[in-house]
């Protein structure tokens, strides 16, 4: 039989205390580590919160900026809108004036053809009699015997009938042009944009020289077009009860502009609607624009788009 092992010695107090101290120290270390970990995480979260606050503040500022821009956009004109109006007007003017040149060439050909036709002996004779009647015979008619007078007048009327197609052709404003239709705009605006209008402006796609240099310019489609719009403007003024409102002519975006001061009048009716209607009426009032294959449309704009110095 082998001897039985000795039972383990119970821990001494010292050992027990030492053990307890070690346990406590270990626990304290664990807690410290945990606390450090918590503090670290808390710090990180605080930083994240601070960063979020910063971001929120930045976003608020950004939002305010965009809201201000939205308000500004609704109440003012952007550079590109202004440039679009200017470029659009200049492009229309350029296309219109090209058509004017094409028409001038066509008119020259027409006039040559007419002159050739009028050299035909029968027409030439009728012309000679027509001229004689106008310059010499007509003033003496009252002093002639009735039968003689009647015969002369009948001959003259016969000549007139024979010449009638030529009279019509010579006096037609424009020959018909075989060309694709060119749309051009007539811009209109009232100032102020809202409320009681103090001024009305029309801008035509023709150069200002049509007004300023009329005495040295040959009458062309641009001039005739301006006449139509001037007539339309005065008809409009009569319709809205402002017949004696002062009208001025000046240059806007290198185009002819017509301006009326309405501040001393109470405009009757809807100015915008009536203006656009009269612009349409001007287009339809003569055959020349249709003959020239030009289509006119009225465009109503905010007044600031027509200032010469632009925005930005």
């Amino acid at each position: 039989m082998s001897p039985s092992p000795e039972p383990p010695h119970p821990p001494s107090l010292v050992d027990a205390l030492a053990q307890a101290t070690r346990e406590r120290a270990r626990e304290e270390q664990e807690i410290e580590s945990a606390l450090a970990e918590v503090a670290k995480e808390e710090l990180q979260n605080r930083k994240a919160i601070d960063e979020s606050y910063r971001r929120i503040t930045a976003l608020r500022l950004l939002r305010r900026e965009f809201e201000e821009r939205r308000v500004a956009l609704a109440t003012s004109t952007s550079d590109y809108e202004w440039a679009a109006v200017r470029n659009g007007l200049l492009a229309d003017r350029s296309r219109f004036m090209k058509r004017v040149e094409e028409l001038r060439a066509a008119a020259r050909v027409r006039d040559e053809q007419l002159a050739e036709q009028m050299r035909a002996p029968e027409i030439a004779a009728a012309l000679r009699e027509f001229e004689l009647f106008q310059t010499e015979v007509e003033p003496t008619l009252p002093s002639l015997p009735p039968a003689y007078r009647r015969a002369i007048v009948e001959t003259h009327e016969r000549n007139l009938r024979r010449l009638e197609p030529y009279i019509r052709a010579v006096n037609s404003l424009t020959p018909r042009l075989d060309a694709p239709v060119e749309p051009v705009g007539v811009v209109a605006c009232a100032s102020p944009a809202d409320g009681r209008p103090e001024a009305l402006v029309l801008v035509l796609p023709v150069p200002f020289e049509v007004y300023r240099e009329w005495a040295t310019r040959e009458e062309d489609l641009a001039g005739i077009f301006a006449y139509r719009l001037v007539a339309a403007l005065f008809k409009l003024l009569a319709d809205i009860g402002a017949e004696d409102a002062p009208v001025e002519y000046f240059e806007v975006h290198e185009c002819l502009a017509l301006q009326v001061w309405l501040g001393d009048h109470t405009v009757q009716g809807d100015l915008r609607e009536q203006t656009l209607e009269h612009i349409g009426g001007a287009y339809e009032s003569g055959p020349e624009l249709t003959n020239a294959a030009v289509e006119v449309y009225g465009v109503w704009l905010r007044p600031e788009l027509l200032t010469e110095d632009g925005y930005g």
């Binding site: 012309l127 106008q134 009279i167 310019r217």
Partner: peptide
Amino acid sequence: MTDGDSDSGNVLLRKLRVDQVARWLEIHP
């Protein structure tokens, strides 16, 4: 529409243009 033609027939039959009347009356067309 052109001023250039000197053909007497054309000239004879032609009515007055707005700018011609304006010149005579010394006012703007």
